[in-house]
Design a protein around this nucleic acid. Structure first.
Length: 403
RNA sequence: GUGGGAUUAGCUCAGUUGGUUAGAGCACUGGUUUGUGGUGCCGGGGGUCGCGGGUUCGAAUCCCGUAUCCCACCCCA
């Protein structure tokens, strides 16, 4: 038997219903926030992710599906969605055009990791990217949009918030942190030593308690923001509070991708195991420029669809449509013609085998239809079809012509 | 990439110190004195026990390897 590759799942019954439902809800809400549909290729030049996501990130450093294609191009299956949207934004000269542009997208992402619950090699994200708005109100809108989506799906969450500063205050802070950590280099773990050279900010969320004891005294970015970042962060917190969005400030929230600045946020759930982040995002004002576009402020997020699936509270399954069945084989052809007529407007389940009434009613019930329509010998003679409403148990006979 | 657990019917699981033809419930399917369902009764199909080696007269059971899933680390959605 040939099986699917490790960490690559099919989306089929019973998850397919939840998946579809998620997309319908997320799409509906994204449109309310004035985002439009967008789709980028799954395969891109490797350089896009190396530059866009950042070589110091784990995603680019060790998790990419990277290969050389037949044209000798160095290509990658996308490990995340933002870089592709930004590439397209620049390629289509929207950075030159100016104005605001808001896109939502959904599709497969690929990361070569060891799979576990909530972590797959091919997984699906729903994301939004907003370009051209530097106001922190847009950050708040985007966060409230995620909250709206989760709320409509009946999913509980915690929102963690942080500010990563901008090119004004971040580099300065980075230097002071490096100075601090270097002083303690002998006492920190191997991971942190590595982080010191690759991505020093990440030492702050080291899980090692002895490291944490040292970092208690480390300078905090939140105390070293420049005036602009500080005031934006305050504004953001105020807006969220005024709109009943609960959050906690987590100064260790640094995010794994290099492109974030200022606002960073993560929605987490306690109910799905150790892979608890269900959505994450933030502002990335420098990324467009960094990928050779004209400087454009931007903010966005991504939701991990698989991680949400089991948390979604589905609306109650309602009965819908018709079940068509025959008691005798002679009635089958007539049955199919009538069902075909009915299919122009309604969901119809047809049973091709003649069976007794009890079997048909049973099957109709299992198919979750509203009406069970049966033709037997009596009906055939009178050119009528017998229809039973499975909810109120009312029965009637309808002339073939009136179907 | 590192460490641990699991794998027997479509699903959830039994299976004794290694011993005849590997079981149950649910699901599926057929019949059920005569045309009424979601909850009656009787029957039926379905398993190279994850895969590959080894030990043994004999392996679902013991040993080795391997694949996949799960858990933790790492990291992220």
């Amino acid at each position: 038997m040939i099986q699917s590759l490790r960490g690559m799942n099919d989306i089929m019954s019973p998850d397919n219903k939840r998946f579809e439902y998620f997309l319908s809800v997320a799409t509906k809400i994204a449109k309310r926030y004035n985002f439009e549909y967008f789709e980028a290729p799954l395969l891109e030049e490797t350089a896009l992710f190396k530059r866009g996501v950042g070589e110091s990130s784990d995603i680019v450093g060790k998790e990419m599906y990277q290969f050389i294609d037949k044209g000798k191009n160095d290509v990658c299956l996308r490990p995340e969605g933002t870089a592709g949207v930004v590439r397209s934004f620049i390629q289509n000269k929207l950075d030159r055009k100016g104005g605001t542009h808001r896109f939502f997208y959904h599709g497969s992402m690929f990361r070569y990791e060891r799979p576990q619950k909530g972590r797959l090699r091919q997984f699906h994200q729903f994301g939004c990217e907003s370009f051209g708005v530097d106001s922190v109100y847009e950050d708040a809108s985007v966060i409230m949009m995620v909250a709206d989506i989760l709320k409509e799906l009946g999913i509980g969450y915690k929102l963690q918030l942080n500010s990563l500063g901008d090119s004004n205050c971040m580099p300065q802070y980075r230097e002071s942190l490096i100075t601090f950590v270097t002083k303690h280099e002998d006492s920190i773990c191997e991971d942190c030593k590595r982080r010191l050279s690759t991505n020093p900010i990440r030492v702050l969320d080291c899980k090692n308690t002895s490291c944490q004891n040292i970092y208690v005294d480390a300078p905090k970015l939140i105390n070293n923001l420049c005036d602009a970042c500080e005031s934006d962060f305050e504004k953001l917190k105020t807006i969220l509070s005024k709109n009943d969005i609960d959050f906690e400030v987590d100064t260790h929230l640094v995010r794994g991708l290099d492109y974030y600045s200022k606002t960073a946020f993560e929605f987490v759930s306690d109910d799905i195991g150790s892979q608890s982040a269900i959505a994450g995002g933030g502002r990335y004002d420098k990324l467009v420029e960094f990928l050779d576009g004209r400087a454009t402020p931007a903010v966005g997020f991504a939701i991990g669809i698989e991680r949400l699936l089991e948390l979604i509270k589905m609306p109650e399954d309602t009965r819908d449509g018709y079940y068509f069945g025959a008691l005798d084989e002679v009635a089958l052809e007539t049955l199919i013609s009538l069902a075909q007529k009915m299919r122009q407007k309604h969901r119809v389940v047809i049973e091709y085998k003649a069976k007794n009434l009890k079997k048909h009613l049973n099957a109709a019930d299992k198919e979750n239809v509203t009406f069970c329509a049966i033709i037997g010998e009596n009906e055939l003679n009178e050119s009528k079809i017998w229809v039973k409403d499975l909810l109120n148990k009312e029965e009637s006979s309808i002339n073939f012509i009136d179907v």
